[in-house]
Design a protein around this nucleic acid. Structure first.
Length: 375
DNA sequence: AATGCACTCAACCGCACATCT
DNA sequence: CAGATGTGCGGTTGAGTGCAT
């Protein structure tokens, strides 16, 4: 490959692994209940490879929990969503896709997903619409622009909230906000929200595809989600004033989607993000108090189903799961990742249901309307 | 059939960070 | 605290493969 070796591996084998080498590596790891030191492993396992090569072979190929086979559409959608949040942090993205390796996801992105986004007129790096001059003649530019503008709105809103809230805590997630998103996503609140969306799927396929499948979701007339959490960044902070700050995301019906995110604080910072329908976008967001944070999650629909992952006070939270204890910040901005992953209702990725070849071959199918509401 | 091109994916490299001494 | 060592990550490469000419 024209580069100098990363370590002194003169005399060591390189290139594709043979079945014998795989077997030797597997046998060693199985015998020793783990790989131990990667550097010493090759000698101990009788392999003429460097430790790095062994580690790579194990993590990307031999590991027993590797999922084989092509990526599903859901996995591809999730990768695109996560990439919009995390960027090229393949390992972080892979952590959200059990059985998939960072290498695999990276390859998928570079060989498939990136091209698809480009064909849609979306910059795969920024997830923003590319310059109109660069759009292909067949790409639904205006649609991509609108969708990505919403995506960007949600992202900026979440980032603004993160930035604002990080200043409220003693240990702000300065080092890596993407990790913060992942912690949120993996926290109890995140899980609760995923459950909500899963339940919601029974009535409506997914938050992401609600717009595209609106005609099939007429029974759902109102969905309200509140995130409830009294957890604060400091144990000395009061946790019984949940009402002072609340988040509401309301979907009034499937045709006329509305989000109402309210947050007012002592500095009277106000955000407005409100989406009234698929064509007319408006978002509202206001924060009422910086000291007292409370989130509620509940979902009500025509059957009056409510979900309340409610945490009444700090002690309750601290006595909860490890994910709650590990980082208070996980719950301080629980709607941030939620916003990013579920907020842009119109961030329809139904194009994943069709392959690029179809798109290129029959651009007439890809009118904005058919993109929003595919047959 | 031979050749060239495009694509895929396993593997490599260098860097950054964490941990150890 | 500083240097050494180990590990993980992201970017990149190139062998293998399939398809078009």
């Amino acid at each position: 490959m024209g580069r100098s070796p990363c370590c002194d591996n003169r005399g060591l084998k390189r290139g594709p692994w043979s079945a014998e080498e795989d077997e030797a590596l597997l046998n060693y790891i199985n015998k020793n209940n783990g790989h131990g030191s990667w550097r010493s492993l090759p000698k101990l396992a009788g392999l003429l490879r460097c430790g790095k090569s062994c580690r790579l072979r194990w993590t990307n190929y031999l590991r027993p929990d590797i999922k084989r086979g092509p990526f599903t559409k859901d996995e591809e959608k999730l990768i695109i969503q996560l990439h919009g949040i995390l960027g090229n942090r393949w390992a972080a993205i892979a952590s959200q896709l059990p059985g998939r390796t960072d290498n695999e996801i990276k390859n998928l992105w570079n060989t498939h997903l990136k091209k698809r986004l480009l064909l849609m007129g979306i910059d795969p790096q920024t997830h923003n619409p590319v310059d109109s001059n660069c759009l292909t003649s067949t790409a639904p530019a205006s649609l991509a622009t609108r969708h990505m503008a919403q995506w960007e709105s949600a992202r900026l809103e979440a980032e603004a909230r993160l930035s604002r809230e990080s200043s409220l805590f003693s240990q702000p997630p300065e080092k890596s906000e993407p990790d913060y998103f992942l912690r949120l996503w993996n926290s109890e609140v995140g899980e609760a929200f995923r459950n909500l969306t899963t339940v919601d799927k029974s009535a409506c396929p997914s938050p992401m595809s609600q717009a595209s499948s609106s005609t099939k979701c007429g029974s759902v007339s109102a969905v309200t989600i509140e995130v409830g959490n009294t957890l604060t960044g400091s144990s000395t902070m009061a946790g019984d004033q949940n009402e002072d700050m609340e988040e509401k995301i309301c979907q009034t019906n499937t045709e006329d989607v509305g989000h109402n995110i309210c947050q007012t604080n002592t500095e009277d910072v106000g955000y407005k993000i409100c989406q009234t329908n698929t064509e007319d976008l408006e978002y509202k967001s206001c924060q009422t108090n910086t000291e007292d944070m409370g989130y509620k999650i509940f979902q009500s629909n025509t059957e009056d189903v409510e979900y309340k992952p409610w945490q009444l006070n700090t002690e309750d939270v601290m006595a909860g799961s490890d994910s709650s204890c590990s980082n208070d910040l996980e719950d301080s901005s629980d709607t941030a990742l939620q916003l990013l992953l579920n907020f842009p209702i119109n961030n329809d990725m139904s194009f994943l249901e069709d392959n690029v070849d179809d798109y290129a071959a029959t651009p007439a199918r890809w009118t904005p309307n058919s993109f929003i509401c595919p047959l």
